[in-house]
Amino acid sequence: MEKVKVGIVGLGRLGRQHAENLAFRIPHCELTAICSVVEEEVWEVQSKWKIPYGYTTYEEMLKNKELDAIFIASPSGFHCNQIQLALEAGFHVFSEKPLGLYLEEAIDVEKAVKAHPNQVFMLGFMRRYDKSYLAAKEKIDRGEIGDPIFIRCYGLDPAAKIESFLQFAEANYSGGLFIDMAIHDLDLARWYLGTEGKEVWAIGGGYERKEFDALQDAETGAAMVRFENNAIGVFLAGRNCAHGYHIETEIIGTKGSLRIGTVPERNQVVLFNELGAVQECVDGFLERFEQAYRSEVEEFISCILEGRKPAVTVQDGVESTRLGYACKESFEKRELVKNKAHTGIV
């Protein structure tokens, strides 16, 4: 196999970026088919980029035997079913996070992946492929901060996008703040600390936009997690960040600490004027993690060509969903919740 032929489903904001990477930036890869329920999107991309096949029905795309792999960038609620259908059809599969909106369906996907051991499955936790987050992981593994005992994560989306976030929540596509947004930070915590969450306390609400309260979702929410090894995690996620897109992570160990993204600077330019020293901030996840989105897909294609499995596994998706769902449950019930992974409950 000289090139991996890929079909992508979902041409929204992130799907379009992934499609462009697959078509023009990923070595040994060919974007052969695109699929969207929006016919105009399919026609536009297919004609502009000269993509051989275009579909408005996912099941029809799966009948295309020229394809080697399926890339899933559809809304979160479709991921589980589409993953299982693609695996059953014999394809390698990459799916954007989250694995699923509900724990039960995430476990079903785990079973499906294990039933197809000769196919590559990879989940889009792209921060693991960001150079800064990778460098922090390497330092932790080398013992440069001792044993990591505390992690603090901020995941704040720009206030300028709050209307689109609200529409996304109203359509029930996201699974809520902790599943949609905080899941990246929950995965990072598991990765950095090397352990699973045990207990969760989550709070939040609609502060600027009360509509989130009516949806039982949070515009801004926070969770405190006690991990199995007694390490502490504090996670803040929000939809209303005035200065832009702010992703920040701090890990404190017994012998030192690390911080990533403390200032979400767009570049190294500093403007000095009557406002003081001003730095522009990144305005969204596509800009901040442009390199990481490309690197994770390069890894997926390499795994297919080399016959190996990626480091991000389906179990990472299940366990992050467990923890995210525990946060969601704690927020909705307003009480301390045991992570189901540690109670024997499925």
Rank of each mutant, 00 (worst) to 15 (best):
V93M: 03
E96H: 09
S320F: 02
Q46S: 07
V263D: 13
L305W: 03
F125K: 05
L186R: 00
E30C: 07
A33R: 01
G77K: 15
K48W: 09
K309Y: 04
S302A: 13
L236Y: 10
Y102H: 15
H184A: 07
Y245P: 00
R25M: 11
G10L: 06
T321C: 14
V346K: 11
H342I: 02
A242T: 14
Y207L: 13
D141A: 14
E59V: 07
E199K: 08
R266A: 10
Q17S: 12
Q17G: 13
I83N: 00
N118P: 02
K65G: 01
G307P: 01
I26K: 03
A73P: 06
V109D: 00
Q268N: 12
L215M: 10
C153M: 12
D147M: 15
R226K: 15
K210T: 11
Q268W: 06
D187Q: 12
T321Q: 06
N172L: 12
F150E: 14
Q216S: 15
S320K: 04
V225K: 01
I183C: 03
F285K: 08
G100N: 12
A326K: 02
A311I: 13
Y192F: 15
S76F: 07
E335P: 04
G324A: 08
V42Y: 01
G276L: 05
S76A: 15
R127F: 06
G204E: 01
P52H: 08
K50L: 10
R259Y: 11
R16L: 11
C29S: 10
F125D: 03
D316K: 00
Q291G: 07
L166S: 11
L177W: 01
Y102S: 12
N229E: 05
N21I: 15
G206C: 05
D187S: 07
A182L: 15
F300I: 09
F91I: 02
E265R: 14
D141T: 06
N339C: 13
R13T: 14
Q268T: 13
Q216P: 01
E287I: 15
L166Q: 13
A23C: 11
V278A: 06
E104C: 07
R266I: 02
Q119S: 10
A115C: 05
I26C: 05
G90L: 04
